[in-house]
Amino acid sequence: MGLSTSLRYKKLSLSMNFNSATGYVIYNNTHNTITNIGQFSKGLNSDVKDFKTTESISDGVAASSRYLENGNFVKLRNATLSYMIGDVAGGKVKNLSVFVSGTNLFVITKFTGFDPEVNVDKSNNNYPSRNMEYIPYPTPRSISFGLNLGL
């Protein structure tokens, strides 16, 4: 799903673009392989929630429905706030405006991994790995400032 909106008040304008997805689960394979309770016996980090399960420290890494998580999310994909100053320098600079713009500003989700937009393909023997998260690179957040002008 997506929603875009533009708001304007006098010389100030704001445009935003949201996107979301609902109705699916993600297998958090990163949690399964990196922070499982078996890592504790090796002196590595483990998730405190793992100690509240019936699994033992000596258990190996195994697939479990415990690592299925809600994949629903809402993201503010883009937002731009700008202020129109107008003509300056005796009309030599026209339509001067300043802005701040951001990408991937926030995400609302219950998913505990890096990013609910799973973008890793770990297909095995032509079996796809859709909805499986495994050490993905998080979607970067960027903020930029700038000027727009005409001569």
Rank of each mutant, 00 (worst) to 15 (best):
G2N: 15
G2L: 12
G2Y: 12
L3Y: 06
T5L: 10
S6T: 15
S6L: 10
L7N: 11
R8T: 04
K11Y: 01
K11V: 01
N17E: 07
N17M: 13
N17G: 11
N17C: 08
S20V: 08
A21F: 01
G23V: 01
G23S: 03
G23W: 02
Y24M: 02
Y24W: 10
V25L: 09
V25C: 04
V25H: 06
N28V: 07
N32S: 10
N32D: 13
T33N: 14
T33S: 11
T33I: 14
T33L: 10
T33D: 13
I34H: 02
I34E: 10
T35E: 00
T35S: 01
N36R: 09
I37H: 00
G38V: 08
Q39E: 14
F40A: 15
F40S: 12
F40V: 11
N45D: 08
N45M: 04
N45F: 03
N45V: 06
S46I: 06
S46Y: 09
S46Q: 08
S46D: 10
D47W: 00
D47M: 02
K49Q: 03
F51S: 05
F51V: 14
K52C: 07
K52S: 14
T53G: 10
I57A: 05
I57D: 03
I57Y: 07
I57M: 02
G60C: 07
V61T: 13
A62F: 03
A62M: 05
A63N: 13
A63M: 11
S64G: 09
R66P: 04
R66N: 08
Y67I: 13
Y67A: 06
Y67M: 07
Y67V: 12
L68G: 13
N72Y: 00
F73T: 12
L76S: 09
L76C: 10
A79Y: 01
A79K: 03
T80Q: 15
L81Y: 02
S82A: 02
Y83P: 13
Y83H: 05
Y83D: 15
Y83A: 11
Y83K: 08
G86P: 14
D87L: 08
V88Q: 11
A89L: 15
G90V: 05
G90I: 12
G91L: 12
K94F: 04
K94E: 10
N95A: 11
N95D: 15
V100D: 08
V100G: 11
V100M: 10
S101Q: 11
L105W: 03
L105P: 05
F106P: 12
F106N: 02
V107W: 03
V107H: 00
V107R: 00
T109K: 12
K110H: 08
K110Q: 14
F111P: 02
D115K: 01
V118Y: 00
N119Q: 11
N119G: 14
V120R: 05
V120K: 06
V120N: 04
D121L: 04
N124P: 02
N124E: 05
Y127N: 14
P128S: 03
P128W: 01
R130I: 05
N131K: 03
M132Q: 11
E133M: 01
Y134L: 07
Y134Q: 07
I135W: 06
P136W: 04
P136S: 15
Y137W: 10
Y137K: 14
P138W: 06
T139Y: 03
T139M: 14
P140Q: 09
P140T: 08
P140C: 09
R141I: 06
S144D: 00
G146A: 02
L147N: 03
L147A: 01
N148L: 04
N148I: 07
L151E: 09
L151W: 12
